[in-house]
């Protein structure tokens, strides 16, 4: 097992290395970056200070170097904790990203928890009450849930909330807590704002997972050991929850690999609509402004979130399912 974990960790590092190459290449595809804009601005100011700053920027980021050299300069900085500078905010990238990445992780994790907490019981109910009216209703809701794109759901919710309930749902904090230091009241305020984005992000994933759970359980219920359990005279609830559901959960953990990307993508776009202080809005604006070091750092952060999530899913699966071998 230890061996397996170590090998997976090594594999993860290699994956991230290649992702960083691809990402860096994509983001450097177009000429005319925010760095050029910054240098032009400094040149226009003129004077000795500006001149020195231009020279230091050129040396730090290798303005005229080919992309591989630029990449090398960037990576050697990252290893030392220097992610480069955001040229539109004129601040180090490191100081801009951490709180945003934190909120992204928080939102995605809560969305995942919400997905499972809702999808598993609903899926079980749907499977055990197959072809009844509630099952049909659940199936219909599932179809709609998958079809409505995240950002539309967020938009619709915004409109409904303000038109019919006369409340705003944007942001993660009320005005008075916006820049307040952390306290229990602020945490409470955060939680009271967070449930709406969490539901929006998790909606399509929940719908999809419910379908998977229903299909899994129906498969398991046909197996002989379930019949054995019933023949032993166990109560139906015990048969379902202790024997059947446990085995129907394994494929669910396996689908985490495709669930996580959709949650992370959802988080990015929903945050833009709902104006949340997470990676989404800043990532897209950094792409549009060609603020390349900010953009690549966010892209890497989101990829790390995904890769680490997948690793945890694999380890979880290996832990709950002893039939899996770690070759």
């Amino acid at each position: 097992m230890v061996n397996y974990v170590l090998r997976r960790l090594l594999y993860m590092v290699v994956t991230l290395f290649f992702i960083s190459i691809i990402g860096f290449f994509i983001i450097n595809l177009v000429p005319g970056s925010a760095l050029d804009a910054r240098i032009n601005q400094l040149r226009a100011q003129g004077g000795e200070v500006s001149y020195q700053e231009i020279e230091s920027l050129k040396a730090r980021y290798g303005l005229n170097d080919p992309i591989p050299v630029k990449y090398w300069k960037w990576v050697s900085g990252v290893v030392h904790g220097d992610f480069g500078e955001s040229f539109t905010y004129q601040e180090p990238v490191g100081s801009l990203i951490w709180s945003r990445i934190g909120f992204s992780v928080l939102l995605s994790s809560f969305a995942l928890i919400f997905t499972w907490v809702v999808a598993i019981p609903v899926g079980v109910y749907s499977a055990t009450h197959r072809y009844t009216v509630p099952d049909y209703v659940i199936t219909l809701i599932q179809f709609i849930g998958v079809a409505v794109p995240d950002f539309l759901m967020a938009l619709i919710l915004l409109v409904v909330a303000s038109k019919f309930f006369h409340t705003g749902v944007g942001g993660l904090f009320s005005q008075q807590y916006q820049n307040a230091p952390w306290s229990w009241a602020r945490v409470g305020n955060l939680l009271s704002h967070m449930w709406i984005p969490v539901i929006v992000i998790a909606a399509s994933a929940t719908a999809w997972t419910t379908r998977v759970m229903r299909a899994n359980l129906l498969d398991v219920l046909n197996q002989q050991y379930v019949q054995t359990a019933r023949a032993k005279g166990l109560r139906e609830a015990v048969v379902i929850w202790k024997h059947a559901v446990r085995n129907a959960l394994h494929p669910l953990i396996m689908t985490l690999g495709s669930l996580l990307p959709s949650l992370i993508s959802g988080e990015v776009i929903v945050s833009i609509v709902l104006n949340l202080p997470t990676t989404g809005p800043l990532y897209i604006s950094s792409l549009i402004n060609k603020d390349m070091y900010l953009a690549i750092t966010f892209l890497m952060a989101l990829s790390i979130l995904l890769v680490v999530g997948n690793l945890l899913a694999d380890l979880l699966l290996a832990w709950v399912d002893p039939r899996i071998r770690y070759e």
Partner: peptide, 11 residues
């Protein structure tokens, strides 16, 4: 598949 879809599209 290890890169989140929407951010990659966006880039």
């Amino acid at each position: 598949m290890s890169m989140p879809t929407l951010p990659l599209w966006a880039a």
